[in-house]
């Protein structure tokens, strides 16, 4: 956020648990409209392969945010289901 404030293009990534905190931090820096890329919480239980999967899903939004072409909502939820929420048992 500080880099963005200094004019360096950035993509702000937060997990869902820290979404409100991220908005508050942006507001403190008077960047109320700073877009956030929101990924499912938690991150610390993802395997390296799942991290790569998440990164691939987030990639288009990161590019949009870096190039300023993201015209979506302030908070863009990345299209990625956290492994913990995927049903392991057939319904």
């Amino acid at each position: 956020m500080y880099l963005e404030k200094r004019g360096v293009p950035t993509s702000t990534v937060v997990s869902t648990a820290f979404r409100v905190h991220g908005r508050l931090a942006a507001k403190n820096l008077q960047m109320d409209n700073l877009p956030q890329l929101v990924v499912p919480h938690p991150l610390n239980d993802l395997t390296p392969d799942e991290v790569r999967e998440l990164a691939r899903a987030a990639y288009p939004v990161v590019i949009e945010q870096l190039t300023g072409t993201n015209k979506q909502a302030l908070d863009t939820l990345v299209n990625y289901d956290h492994p913990a929420t995927r049903s392991k048992v057939p319904a």
Partner: peptide, 9 residues
């Protein structure tokens, strides 16, 4: 110091 919602986690 902070709005509820950001500090309730």
């Amino acid at each position: 110091g902070g709005t509820p919602g950001s500090i309730n986690i």
